[in-house]
Simulated scan of single mutants.
Amino acid sequence: MSISRAFLQQTALGALVAAGALFSGHQAFAADKVTLMVGGYEKQIYLPAKLAEALGYFKDEGLDVELLNEPAGVDAENEMLAGAVQGVVGFYDHCIDLQAKGKFVESVVQFSQAPGEVELVSTKHPEIKSAADFKGKSLGVTGLGSSTNFLTQFLAVKAGLKLGDFTSVPVGAGNTFIAAMQQDKIQAGMTTEPTISRLLKTGEAKVLIDMRTIEGTKAALGGTYPAASLYMQTDWVEAHKEDTQKLANAFVKTLKFINTHSAAEIAEKMPKDYYVGDKDGYVKALGDGKAMFTADGVMPEGGPETVLKVLSTFSKDLQGKQIDLSKTYTTAFVKNAK
């Protein structure tokens, strides 16, 4: 029995229509793709990014989040401004710095209320007893224009030095920072965990200024200092409110997890190479510094004012500029988080 050409054509058309319906249905439910640049995702200060991924919270929100690693926050910021990524996991101070340059960027989720940074001094240089002794020294920072550079400049100027009295050397973090100190390319430098613990354990460095806790931060900087955050261009946030809300939902859940679980439980969720061969040291450092994270992603009261005051101490970009702090962060999404 022959099958008519018309029937075959109709059947083929029906199959195509069905396939098209399935395809469009798949597209409708596909996860939204968002790319975030992290200023060194092995750093404990930026732990919420990798933890949210490990816990599956991005997927729970229907997001396909790609995390890219960039050791220096200033380079991550440039990637975002160029449109290569939608957001940055980095320090809030860039939002203020960029407004002074005519660019509007806002912290959407505030991860921490202390920098989690330490100024370490090489034990080869016992003459460095305070920031006033930075004169003539080479000081390690992650990158020029980075938050570690901002904080280093502030501490030096606060101690009575001029910016030309010392040299900021971009050395990244981890192995590159450690090598720079071992080779005496830097005599002191600002870094985070787990780099801090690694150098303290070997006795190659000692702590000069500790900003891992809220108390230490207030002593060094004069107030609560909102640091690690998810920041994005204001225009992108306005145009993508649904995706921004989903990101806020995932990160607020992550911050709650950090606040309700032990350092050991959190460490178990992280890639094993982050321990750098010393899991106990990693867990201890996380336990000691865990209080820097906010419980809900909300900007701490008075924090933006402290950051503006710190940056205004040394930054020529900010001098004579009117900064609208209300445009450097938003609490709308974290307060609506599920």
Rank of each mutant, 00 (worst) to 15 (best):
Ala264His: 03
Leu13Ser: 11
Glu79Ile: 12
Ala156Val: 06
Val298Lys: 10
Lys158Ser: 07
Gly116Asp: 01
Pro48Tyr: 08
Gly39His: 09
Ala267Ser: 11
Ala156Leu: 05
Ala12Lys: 09
Met232Ile: 05
Lys43Thr: 12
Lys272Gln: 15
Met37Lys: 15
Leu68Tyr: 09
Val34Asp: 04
Ala19Tyr: 14
Ala76His: 03
Phe23Thr: 12
Val276Cys: 10
Gly164Asp: 12
Thr224Arg: 08
Tyr41His: 15
Ala49Leu: 07
Lys321Met: 10
Tyr57Ala: 06
Val207His: 07
Thr294Ala: 04
Ser197Leu: 05
Ala19Thr: 13
Lys59Ile: 06
Tyr329Ala: 03
Pro115Phe: 00
Lys241Glu: 12
Thr244Phe: 01
Gly281Ser: 12
Ile96Phe: 04
Asp280Cys: 06
Asp97Lys: 14
Gln27Val: 14
Asp210Leu: 06
Ala21Leu: 15
Ala21His: 07
Gln99Gly: 02
Glu61Val: 02
Gly303Tyr: 08
Leu68Ser: 14
Val283Ile: 13
Gly281Ala: 05
Met190Ala: 12
Glu238Ile: 10
Leu98Trp: 04
Ala179Cys: 09
Gly83Thr: 04
Lys201Ser: 13
Leu55Lys: 05
Ser168Glu: 13
Lys279Gln: 13
Phe104His: 15
Pro115Ser: 07
Asp184Ser: 13
Tyr225Trp: 06
Val38Ala: 08
Glu268Ala: 15
Ala180Tyr: 03
Gly83Lys: 02
Thr313Pro: 10
Gly90Tyr: 04
Ala49Phe: 07
Ala219Glu: 14
Gly303Gln: 03
Glu53Phe: 11
Ile258Gln: 02
Lys162Asn: 13
Ala49Trp: 04
Gly40Asn: 02
Leu139Glu: 02
Ser138Leu: 13
Gly189Glu: 03
Ala285Gln: 00
Asn78Gly: 12
Asp280Gln: 14
Phe154Trp: 03
Tyr46Val: 12
Lys158Ala: 01
Lys137Arg: 13
Val88Cys: 01
Tyr225Thr: 06
Leu255Lys: 04
Lys162Gly: 13
Thr152Gly: 14
Gln187Glu: 13
Val237Ile: 05
Arg5Gln: 13
Pro194Glu: 06
Gly90Thr: 11
Asn249Met: 03
Gly297Lys: 08
Gln113Trp: 02
Leu139Met: 11
Phe150Ile: 09
Lys135Val: 05
Lys201Gln: 14
Phe166His: 01
Thr294Tyr: 06
Ala159Trp: 05
Thr167Gln: 14
Ala54Gly: 09
Gly164Glu: 13
Val307Ile: 02
Asp60Arg: 13
Val141Asn: 01
Lys201Phe: 10
Val65Ile: 02
His125Ser: 10
Asp184Val: 09
Ser130Met: 09
Met232Gln: 09
Leu255Thr: 01
Ile3Met: 12
Ala285Lys: 00
Phe134Glu: 03
Val307Asp: 00
Ala332Thr: 15
Trp236Asp: 03
Ala228Phe: 03
Glu66Met: 10
Ser262Leu: 06
Leu200His: 00
Asp93Arg: 10
Ala332Phe: 10
Tyr57Met: 07
Ala205Gly: 04
Leu286Thr: 02
Val109Lys: 02
Gly216Ala: 05
Gln183Phe: 12
Leu120Lys: 00
Asn69Lys: 07
Tyr274Arg: 11
Met181Ala: 03
Asn336Arg: 13
Tyr275Met: 11
Tyr57Gln: 08
Met270Phe: 07
Thr224Cys: 10
Gly140Trp: 01
Pro271Met: 10
Ala264Asp: 08
Ile258Asp: 01
Ala173Gln: 09
Thr244Asp: 00
Glu238Ala: 15
Ala76Gly: 11
Gly116Arg: 00
Lys269Arg: 15
